[in-house]
Nucleic acid binder design. Structure first.
Lengths: 231, 231, 231, 231
DNA sequence: TATGAATGAGAGTTCATTCAT
DNA sequence: CATGAATGAACTCTCATTCAT
């Protein structure tokens, strides 16, 4: 969990104005608080997934975390804040996953493929995060996030696709084409994931992972062929 | 609105056993009743769109339609029935729109393009229907529709894409490929529409209608080239 | 059904002020109305029995009688009036049953036995009437009968036990003893019937009809022995 | 009120692992909670008596106890649970009353008389408990008590009459006769109490307490004379 | 007479949130 | 920090009754 932490980077601080003993105590408390917060968030994640955004109740979250409802408000000021924290954390993990996926890629083509697949696979194998992210993708009613947080979250989502865009450029796509392909890929992904995740895909009896791979291949081919054409 | 009407075609009836006056009165009442039902559904559509599936309340629907909450239950037996009626109607209009779009198509290629575009454009230009259909596409928690209705609705959705599938076959696609392309197109569409409709697409600064057209062109090319390859 | 009828005894009327034709028409209408009323009451009886006094709804009564709820109010001014009519009718039938039971009794002893058994058996074999009568016996909340009707009904109930009282006197009981025995018998009956009718009697694994017969025998013996003692 | 208490006997505890302060606080809260629960139950008892089982509303109970409706649900999970608690408590007090009544009885005859009278008098002097118990006696529609609770309550009711049955055996009655007499007495009691409690007894102008005493005397005589006959 | 529509009150229950302790 | 109690508003839905037609 990577929600904003109470912990501060304490290195390089000199001439503390607050006595060191007091400070240490504060840090200790903050660590404990963070751990409890994370515990509540884990419970909340389950509940949000099980009951949906509106169906989830603070009562249920509290129960699952082993608290009374009131206690939750020591850590979060409102139900919506919990959702914000959860979403925030989810996006961090998405970016981590994409970064890791690109890891050892040796060619531009590989970078294109792995960044795209990394994105898809994160959500395919973490359906709960798809549910959470749904608000961002547009499926759910806005949920009262602060405009600031909203912007931050959108940026982080965009970030997760930057590697893909860069790799396309590397592969020879024009900036315009790259942007178009990123958008189209994102839409395609969202569509496939939704269908897959809610078993609605069975309607068409297809395997969404395979379809995604096919789509990525097509993107690569398109970009390469256009480049070749220009040469 | 196409919900099952109380009206019956009364032309060509001779020697009525029931006095004409009575019958006429019943018809009149049925017309009024249908109109009122439609009026409530219109109000409900707004409310569902504004507040989402779970956020919408019978109270609000009633208020907007100019009724007390209890009055709604003269027309619908439960909140979910309202949603069902709305969704049902929406899918009928979707099918109408697709049929109309194919209308004067002169070639298989045109049939492919128009059936796909017809689907896309219906939702692009009727965002409220996208919201309604969302349950079917998988975005929201299931909403307690009866299994029967659920099946019916899924079938109607599938129907709206059958023209596209048939046209692909006509164009030379194998049944397998046709199915895959339908699924992929559907996913792509859903993704684009969601992004477009919730203004999330701006994030990528692209025009989703254009992207859809591009996608359709690619489908046509793919199918044609595969066919050519086989020849 | 013996609810107050619209029919009037038209014999012995001379010099009618209203033309005969009109009168005949009125009578005809009244007969139809009575029949319909009776039909509604029959439906109501079922409903009251099935759902209890408070659980019964005008909607349900109307549905079972093949009417819309509003139509009921053409025949009864309120739900409670239906109950009153039902109760009234029930008591008339109770009195009929007791009278019939005494019919061919040849001795005072037989009259005691048959009047008591007649009372018990009416309710034992018409459990629905027991439910109805329950208000009178005290089990249910008062149900808004008019004081007039209330008095009438109480009187009719009392009437049904007068034969028993008279027979006891005949058998030699003093007026005081006769009254006490009537009251005690009534209480005993009510208790047994309730237990029997609601299957609560099984708790004690006894047969209430047998217990009632036993009780009546005891009454007869008591009265006879007291008389003998006095001689 | 004897509903399951939160209080635990804390005497004789040594070396508490939980700090005493905390424990004391918990106990204090539990006492207060119990008192409040009792207070709500008292209000509920009034309301149930005034409006009957179905007429009583959670809103009214809350108002009378000085709460908002929602607050009630901190103490009871459903309206029916309130009724169950009330009935449970009532039956405990009934058993207490009967036990106390038998207290100093010196002979079998006295035990018969006192156990029966104890039963009668409990309800005669606690009319509200008669109303409550009515469901058990069969007067009202079943009220959705859990089958478990239902069984428990029936057992407790049966318990309250066991002393009477045992005393009859002691007096020389055969097991069969004892059972019959218990059942008959119970029915007689229920009948008398209902009549007395709803002032319906006035109809017969008799004193139900006197009638009950008379009935008990008769039982004793019957059992004794049968025994004598056998000797 | 009978209908269908509508009302207004009220039912039980759940909820996010607050707050004294 | 955590609790248990409490609030007040909201929820879906049902009811007896009225009334124009």
């Amino acid at each position: 969990m990577r929600q904003t932490s109470n912990l501060k980077d304490s290195s390089k601080e000199k001439a503390p104005k607050v006595p060191n003993a007091l400070k240490a105590r504060k840090d200790r408390l903050a660590i404990v608080s963070d751990a409890k917060k994370a515990h509540i968030l884990a419970a909340a994640k389950e509940v949000f997934e099980e009951y949906g955004l509106e169906g989830a109740s603070v009562r249920e979250i509290a129960k699952r975390a082993g608290y009374t409802p009131g206690a939750i408000y020591s850590y979060f000021t409102a139900k919506e804040e919990i959702y914000g924290a959860l979403l925030s954390d989810s996006l961090e993990r998405l970016n981590d996953a994409v970064n890791k996926s690109i890891g050892g890629a040796k060619s531009a083509t590989q970078r294109v493929e792995r960044s795209a697949l990394g994105f898809y696979e994160f959500y395919a194998s973490n359906p709960r995060d798809l549910d959470l992210g749904f608000y961002l993708f547009g499926g759910a009613r806005p949920y009262g996030l602060t405009p600031d947080l909203n912007t931050t979250l959108n940026t982080r989502l965009r970030d997760s696709l930057l590697h893909f865009e860069h790799a396309l450029l590397e592969l020879g796509a024009s900036p315009k084409v790259a942007k178009e392909e990123v958008t189209a890929f994102f839409a395609h992904c969202v569509g496939l994931l939704i269908l897959e995740n809610t078993h609605r895909i069975k309607m068409f009896k297809e395997d969404s992972a395979k379809l995604c791979a096919t789509y990525i291949t097509q993107v690569v081919e398109r970009v390469k062929s256009v480049k070749k054409g220009r040469n």
